[in-house]
């Protein structure tokens, strides 16, 4: 799968190259951060390490692909008035409507998974819960594989590979899209945490029994955490699917490992239960990865192809040596 993204840019002068690398790092970091927030909200709300995040993210991207490609199906009434041009790339508004729908479906998937697989196990040790999420990941596998094993499925990105010229650097619209998406996600999560259910979720995270004693319905909070978590990782997957990221505007088998494993160093760095931590962790990991890919490229023969993909894990190990709780995590997490 090795990364078109991570191949070094043709040199067009120091500054444009640097700027391009920086923006690429920010864009990839935005995607990691959104996925990280999706992971963190599940951990915060339900004390579950969600190792199904990769599978759920894939499924979310698949829902998107199904909606944008097969929207001519009669049971999708919105498709006809909005998309007489079935088979061609949709307009941006129609694409966005599909995006919202795909996220809603992903959220429902998250809530259903929580209800059938997580809720009955509430109160079990952290490790058992983590194994259950691994089970979910495995169970989602065939669905994701069957849908994508033959061909990658298009996400019908309206702006394709278009880019803006800026100070001599080419800035792909997808990069800007990823950053905008991350900012929106971050702002809405912050708003959510001030809302009635958001405050309830933080209360449950701090002291579940005391939250119950206030009449907070813990099951409902769990459900919301999984719904939001699923929608967020789906955002990450869909925006990672855009060119010029390696999937080149598709959802395919090849993005699954990235979705499943790259989020781990991000949230371990950020500290499992911290939303700002996920943001900074994502930006840091992605920048390290992208800058190493760009500026260590002449050592590829020594470092080995694809060396930049292990950079995140190296960064994670170094930070953990200095700060075992991650950059922003609370120390209490060590209890678990």
């Amino acid at each position: 799968m090795i990364d078109v993204l991570l191949l070094a840019q043709e040199s067009t002068g120091f500054f444009p190259t640097f700027l391009q690398t920086l923006i690429k790092g920010l864009a990839l970091g935005s995607i990691y951060a959104v996925m990280g927030i999706g992971f963190v909200i599940v951990f915060k709300g339900t004390q579950v390490l969600n190792f199904a995040a990769g599978g759920i993210a894939m499924a979310g991207a698949l829902f998107m692909s199904i909606l944008v490609n097969d929207a001519g199906l009669p049971f999708l009434p919105f498709s006809n008035p909005l998309a007489p041009e079935i088979g061609t790339t949709p307009s941006i508004p129609r694409w966005l409507i599909n995006l919202v729908l795909a996220l809603i479906i992903a959220a429902i998937l998250g809530m259903v998974l929580e209800r059938i697989a997580i809720r009955p196990m509430i109160g079990q040790p952290l490790f058992s819960m983590a194994v259950i999420t691994l089970g979910i990941e495995t169970a989602l596998g065939p669905f994701n594989r069957d849908a994508t094993s033959l061909t990658a499925r298009s996400l019908q990105i309206p702006w394709g590979l278009e880019q803006w010229e800026f100070l001599g650097a080419g800035i792909p619209k997808s990069y800007v899209g990823a950053m905008v998406a991350a900012v929106l996600c971050f702002l809405s999560i912050n708003l959510f945490f001030r809302s009635r259910f958001g405050v309830a979720m933080r209360a449950v995270a701090f002291d579940q029994e005391a939250a119950q004693a206030q009449g907070i319905n813990v099951g409902r909070v769990f459900s919301i955490a999984w719904g939001l978590g699923a929608a967020l990782v789906a955002v990450g997957a869909i925006f990672y699917g855009m060119g010029p990221f390696p999937p080149q505007g598709t959802v395919s088998q090849e993005i699954h490992p990235v979705l499943a494993f790259r989020v781990l160093p991000v949230i371990i760095l950020g500290g499992l239960d911290s939303i700002p931590g996920a943001l900074y962790g994502g930006l840091l990991i992605a920048s390290a990865e992208v800058f190493a890919g760009q500026y260590l490229a002449q050592w590829t023969s020594v470092l080995g192809a694809g060396y930049s993909t292990i950079v995140p894990y190296i960064v994670m190990l170094i930070v953990l040596l200095v700060r075992p709780y991650g950059l922003f995590g609370s120390e209490e997490i060590r209890r678990v």
Binding site: V199, R202, A203, F206, A210, A211, I216
Partner: peptide, 14 residues
């Protein structure tokens, strides 16, 4: 059993 990471107002909101 106050929610230590929540403000006074937020505790009351719960």
């Amino acid at each position: 059993r106050c929610f230590g990471e929540l403000t006074v107002d937020e505790n009351l909101a719960t």
